[in-house]
């Protein structure tokens, strides 16, 4: 496939990078990334991946745009209030880059649909806002052997890691089980600074781009934390994937997906 003049121009700042070049840009255009959650993390990630020319981007979310989302979910505008988030996000992505295909999934992920959802994609981004979804995405990606970026944000803090199943540690290697309902605050209860989604979601997009192009070192085996008040990034080296993990060890005890109970405060949708 040869680039059109328009593509050469659109992606010129990528193509000029010796690490990316024409080859890397072709990989991006052939790449398929699924973003679960079109919110604080998913919004900036989706916009950067669309702009980067990731050829197929899936976006899953069962919510509609609410006024309280707009403080951080920069892919939606005031005119989008009431619209399905996946449609609003898709419109923005297509407006940024008509060169790409956007697939929308107006649905909650659960144990019965997630395997089908992730099957067609090369890399998954977790942009969800609750522990049941985060554990479900981890377990499904581990079982399906799909690399993914996990992230979480709250107040002035954020963190992320990249999981390469079979190679590095997974989310459940760090946290064995979801915390009980309401034991750990969510963004809705505790608040989150709007730009945090921009910082961490953009880092997730960066990992997706690196994975698709094979450039650099992925954040596998590390948890990167960011504290905006101290303006500090800290990279925590994780123990290697070992025998202890219930889902990613060579002898897992979790072999079926689990639908954990959703924290009550997250159920308003």
């Amino acid at each position: 496939m040869a680039f059109t003049d328009e593509q050469l121009e659109r992606y010129s700042r990528h193509i000029i990078l010796k690490e990316i070049g024409v080859k890397g840009q072709k990989k991006l255009l052939a790449g398929k990334v699924l973003i679960i959650g079109a919110g604080g993390l998913g919004a900036p990630a989706a916009m950067y991946l669309a702009a980067a020319g990731v050829g197929t981007i899936g976006i899953a979310d069962a919510d509609k745009v609410d006024l309280s989302n707009l403080q951080r979910q920069v892919i939606h505008t005031t005119n989008d209030i009431g619209k399905r988030k996946v449609e609003s996000a898709a419109e923005t992505m297509r407006a940024i880059n008509p060169d790409i295909t956007v697939n929308t999934y107006y649905d909650f992920v659960n144990s019965s649909n997630i395997m089908d959802l992730i099957a067609d994609y090369d890399f998954i981004l977790d942009g969800t806002d609750n522990f049941p979804a985060k554990f479900l995405i981890n377990d499904a990606c581990v079982m399906a052997g799909k690399p993914f970026s996990h992230a979480g944000i709250i107040r002035f803090k954020g963190q992320l890691t990249t999981v390469i199943p079979g190679e590095g540690p997974c989310y459940r290697c760090i946290f064995k089980n979801p915390p009980p309902k309401d034991a750990v605050p969510t963004c809705k209860q505790a608040g989150v600074i709007g730009a945090m989604g921009g910082v961490i979601g953009s880092l997730q997009a960066m990992e997706a781009v690196k994975y698709l192009t094979g450039v650099g070192e992925l954040l596998s085996g590390y948890l990167l934390t960011y504290d905006a008040l101290k303006m500090e990034f800290h990279k925590v080296k994780l123990p290697p994937r070992g025998d202890g993990c219930a889902v990613c060890s060579d002898h897992p005890t979790i072999t079926e997906l689990i639908d954990y109970e959703q924290a009550a405060c997250d159920m308003k949708q």
Binding site: G40, D126, G127, G152, C173
Partner: peptide, 29 residues
């Protein structure tokens, strides 16, 4: 290396140890 939460009380730290705390962060949307 992860320390089992049941062993926090019985695990004595030594000079030069490198300790990390990893926190649940559930937000994202």
């Amino acid at each position: 290396e992860f320390v089992d939460s049941g062993a926090f009380g019985s695990t004595a730290l030594k000079d030069g140890d490198n300790v990390e705390f990893l926190y649940f962060m559930g937000g994202g949307r």
